[in-house]
Amino acid sequence: MMFKMWSVNTPVLMGIGWKNFVKDNDLTKHCDFLTIWMFRHKNSDEICFAIDKTRHHTVTRPLSKRISKAVFKNPN
C-alpha cells in the first residue's frame, strides 16, 4: 500500500497493496466505511496501518453532499 497526499486535505491509499486489500476484504463501494490509522512502528520506524471496517447494508449510493458535510467535517 502507498500513502499519498493529493492535496492538503485529501490523503489517499493506493497501489497494488490497496487493490489487494479491497479485494481480500470484499469491500463494497458506498456501504463500507473505513477508519484508517497510520503510524510508525516503534522499532523499525516503518509506516503501518490499522484499518477498521463498518458495513452499512442500507447505503447503496453516494451520501448526499449535505450528509457528507455533516458527518465528515473538515477539522481545519
Score class of each variant (00 low, 15 high):
1 M>H: 14
2 M>T: 07
2 M>S: 11
3 F>K: 10
3 F>Q: 04
4 K>G: 04
4 K>F: 10
5 M>V: 09
5 M>K: 15
7 S>A: 11
7 S>Q: 10
7 S>C: 03
9 N>C: 11
10 T>Y: 13
10 T>N: 08
11 P>E: 11
11 P>W: 10
12 V>P: 00
13 L>K: 00
15 G>E: 03
15 G>S: 00
15 G>Y: 00
15 G>L: 02
16 I>K: 15
17 G>H: 08
18 W>G: 06
20 N>A: 12
22 V>I: 15
23 K>C: 10
23 K>E: 11
26 D>A: 06
27 L>M: 04
27 L>I: 05
27 L>Y: 01
29 K>A: 13
30 H>N: 08
31 C>N: 07
32 D>V: 01
33 F>P: 00
33 F>D: 01
33 F>C: 02
34 L>C: 00
35 T>Y: 14
35 T>E: 14
35 T>W: 12
36 I>C: 14
36 I>S: 01
37 W>H: 15
38 M>H: 08
38 M>A: 13
39 F>I: 01
40 R>A: 03
41 H>D: 13
41 H>W: 06
41 H>Y: 02
41 H>V: 03
44 S>P: 04
44 S>V: 04
46 E>W: 09
46 E>Q: 11
46 E>Y: 14
51 I>S: 03
51 I>D: 01
51 I>A: 03
52 D>R: 14
52 D>W: 15
53 K>I: 12
53 K>T: 14
53 K>D: 07
53 K>Q: 07
54 T>C: 13
55 R>V: 04
55 R>E: 02
55 R>Q: 05
57 H>N: 15
57 H>T: 12
59 V>Q: 13
59 V>K: 04
60 T>V: 13
61 R>S: 12
61 R>V: 09
62 P>W: 08
62 P>H: 03
62 P>C: 08
62 P>E: 05
62 P>D: 05
63 L>V: 09
64 S>W: 12
66 R>E: 09
67 I>M: 13
67 I>K: 15
67 I>P: 03
67 I>C: 15
70 A>L: 15
70 A>R: 13
71 V>M: 06
71 V>H: 05
72 F>H: 12
73 K>V: 10
73 K>C: 08
74 N>L: 09
75 P>G: 00
75 P>Q: 06
75 P>S: 10
75 P>V: 05
